[in-house]
Design a binder for these strands. Structure first.
Length: 235
DNA sequence: GACCAGGCACATC
DNA sequence: GATGTGCATGGT
């Protein structure tokens, strides 16, 4: 995919091709922050639960909910199926939208139980990627970002995660205008990066790290952003 | 007290 | 198809 900003001419006149630039970003971020080893979760199931709980929610609040679930012994497929909705809601309360998220977790559990593997996420996420992805997207409460997070981080499947951080970095560095839909942004990365799962995994994690340290939403620009320095260096 | 945080589903036009 | 709204807690 060439034209990300597509309909609109990009704010940046690329002196380097997109694929080279994206790889350069990666090398810069990796050099600056090192390997992130994502996702922050002990098990595949915990990763998937975290992906649902973090929807429009600060991660620190998700951590509290995860701790509650673990403490109650229900941070597993079997455990979570035995707990009541009321109890589940109280446990995940710190992550916000708890009534909605109970419904979403239930739908996810039902999906997991319907797949081959007896509740094993590793097995549930096997098979042709596009088919598994579509199947996940059919679950109530699982949209593209959540599906891709689960696929990549809980299933080691090669799909690029597009989230608020991904978009923020692209927009601030002139590779997106803000009008692109999810699939367009995903294609930007998947069409211009080597097809390596490990790379997709680290790349998105590095974007999150970058934004948390340099690209606060309140700030109009990223302060001390390593990617800015990298761009100046290229000229 | 306003704003923000690793979305998503649904109603309405 | 685009746009608006509800969902909710906790930190800054």
């Amino acid at each position: 995919m060439k034209g990300m900003a597509g309909h609109r001419p990009s704010a940046v006149n690329h002196e380097t091709s997109l694929d080279k630039r994206l790889v350069s970003w990666y090398e810069t971020l990796l050099g600056r922050f090192g390997r992130q080893g994502w996702w922050p979760g002990r098990t595949r199931f915990e990763i998937a639960v975290g992906a649902i709980l973090t929807q429009n929610t600060a991660w620190a609040n998700v951590e509290k909910a995860i701790r509650n679930l673990r403490g109650a012994g229900v941070l597993s497929f079997r455990g979570m199926r035995t707990v009541s909705n009321r109890r589940l809601a109280s446990l995940i309360r710190p992550s916000g939208y708890f009534n909605q998220k109970v419904v979403k977790l239930r739908a996810f559990l039902a999906w997991l139980g319907s797949r081959d593997g007896g509740g094993s996420l590793k097995r549930a996420l096997r098979g042709p990627l596009s088919e598994v992805r579509e199947s996940l997207l059919g679950v109530r409460g699982i949209g593209p970002e959540t599906a891709d997070s689960i696929l990549l981080y809980a299933g080691d499947r090669r799909t690029f995660v597009v989230d608020a951080y991904t978009r923020r970095v692209l927009e601030r560095h002139g590779l997106a205008s803000g009008g692109e839909d999810y699939e367009q942004v995903r294609a930007l990365f998947e069409d211009n990066l080597p097809a390596v799962t490990r790379l997709y995994n680290e790349y998105h994690a590095l974007f999150v790290r970058l934004c948390k340290e340099h690209c606060a939403k309140r700030q109009p620009r990223c302060r001390g952003c390593p990617l800015e320095a990298d761009r100046r260096k290229q000229k």
